[in-house]
Design a protein around this nucleic acid. Structure first.
Lengths: 310, 310
DNA sequence: TCTCACAATGCTCAATATGAGCATAAAGGG
DNA sequence: CCCTTTATGCTCATATTGAGCATTGTGAGA
């Protein structure tokens, strides 16, 4: 007996898999960059997380490593078959792995959120440009709302002695969405948009880009106090490479000497005993993450100094 | 058309409502303390959060204030009607409100987790006692596992120069569960347990106590860097009352002078202009939370100094 | 009325942590 | 052999934190 009014739903599992490619963080996608791996919960799945892992491996061949639940939401609308959907999204980190299948591939996440990449003055200028566009849009809004919107602009995009906070990825995306500055919003308003470059950043199907934004924000927040960055590093790495990874994820530059100081004194890594020589410059020592401390690390937490430039 | 293998599920919404009673944090329950408010997602619910709010208000008459999603999980087993359940749990904070309905009421959360209350030496002794019981249990385990278990014990219950970390509520509950030291686990092993006091702390139906543990851990972690404590305070309060609230939630004592210093210099509160006099002692100034900063507060975060004693 | 216990409030001081920059070391390329 | 480049080591000013002493108003009881 099923109670009246009680709707049965299809449970959809969606995964944001992140790895560090040669040019920074990349996300695993289907349909040539337009979709995240996903699929419905099935009878044989023993848990939500298992189901998610199963779909990812089936669709892409990649094994998720460190996994964490992101958010669960219900579709706004009842679909054609009268069925409603509940989507459970996950963030998973893995070392970089190549994929073979058609239409499956890694894409730099800054393709989707170019304004989040602020490691060069040129990149910062792009974010500033968007901020101006937002300010212009705010001007078209009801006067009563404008002051609140301007305040929100300052908090999310950094202005009037508020600093840019790298973990507010979702808040910025939603702001741009409201202002109709991203493709998904434009399409919603004007019908199908055939112009690929109609809005800022690359679009995705449904609300997958929103989920990606959630994942980015969560990851950026998390690397500050948990050693999750090591989940994406290869077995051996130099401190320079580690710093590069953090900078790419956080989307900003950090002070090199202070970064090393903190990382070293946390003692979560140990010297592996070799060195790596590159084009020019002094060879760098190789380190490895002390996996034996994983339990400690999960529970105790650590922190990486993600801060401002140089 | 519904695909083969794809299971439709019932989506259950579960709420942990927390308020500050006269003796510390309390949780809103049904069935005389054995259940959390919950109910299935219904067709008319426009979102998961709305559905949760709807159930809470219907069952208890209390309006949830600040809301945050906790975790989503699938039932391990298919139920009698062949249907599977997915449960989405929420944490909600509210000022203390009285309830009228039968079997509905507030219960101190330390009834369920007495070892989490460490504001007196006697309370700490109880946690120590449990730690000893766990250590004994570890002795009965396969020798190969023992070293890992002892390490985990040190991390979660504090030992061998590891400190007790108040936000590890779930980890401690799960450890006790594994060791068969809480009622739910005993029942699972031995069939129905008619002894109410068979295990540590008061039991709840299904995995509701696990959800409560998740909520407690999240709240304890959150008050350190977000001003959520104010969601549970009355309009006017003294710094002493605020500190009391934080201490009750965190389950440990804080240094009074340093607490005030940080709270005041964060400038999230303002003097309300009166004072409150109690039994003995100098009257305390009244403060109020600056609601106008809510946007800032949500985004920017703040932090309360939750630390060790005095 | 005078004292005392009590909580609130104000302030100091040492120990750390953090932000920023200078200096040196060890490679490769002309 | 000099120059550029990256790694590494170290210093110093400043901010944050942990801990404790001192002072101020009150109510209660001698």
């Amino acid at each position: 007996m099923i109670e009246e009014n009680v709707s049965l739903v299809r449970a959809e599992l969606i995964a944001v898999l992140v790895a560090l490619g040669p040019e920074g963080p990349e996300v695993l996608t289907l349909k040539d960059g337009c979709m995240l791996p996903s699929g419905p919960l099935q009878t044989q799945h023993r848990s939500l997380q298992r189901g998610m892992r199963d779909w990812v491996e089936r669709q892409t061949g990649v094994r998720p490593g460190h996994i964490e639940q992101l958010y669960t939401f219900a579709d706004r609308l009842i679909s054609d078959d009268g069925m409603r959907g509940v989507a459970v999204s996950y963030l998973a980190l893995t070392p970089y792995a190549s994929v073979g299948a058609e239409d499956v591939g890694w894409h730099r996440w800054y393709e989707y959120f170019p304004w989040e990449e602020r490691r060069s003055p040129a990149a910062v200028r792009y974010a500033d440009h968007l901020r101006d566009a937002l300010r212009e849009w705010i001007g078209t809004q009801p006067p009563a709302r404008q002051s609140l919107l301007l305040h929100r602009l300052a908090l999310t995009f950094g202005a009037e002695d508020h600093e840019w906070q790298d973990e507010l990825v979702l808040q910025r995306y939603e702001f741009l969405y409201e202002a109709g500055l991203v493709a998904e919003a434009i399409e919603k308003k004007c019908g199908v948009s055939d112009q690929e470059e109609a809005g800022a950043g690359r679009r995705m199907a449904d609300d997958h880009r929103r989920i990606l934004a959630t994942a980015m924000g969560r990851l950026r927040a998390k690397i500050r106090y948990r050693p999750v960055i090591y989940e994406m590093m290869p077995e051996l790495f130099t401190l320079g490479e580690l710093q590069d990874a953090v900078e790419h994820v956080a989307g900003c530059l950090v002070h090199k000497q202070n970064f090393r100081r903190q990382v070293v004194q946390q003692a979560l890594i140990e010297e592996a005993g070799g060195e790596r020589r590159s084009a020019g410059g002094r060879p760098a020592r190789l380190y490895r993450f002390r996996r034996s401390l994983m339990l400690d690390a999960q529970i105790a937490g650590s922190k990486l100094p993600v801060v401002r430039g140089r």
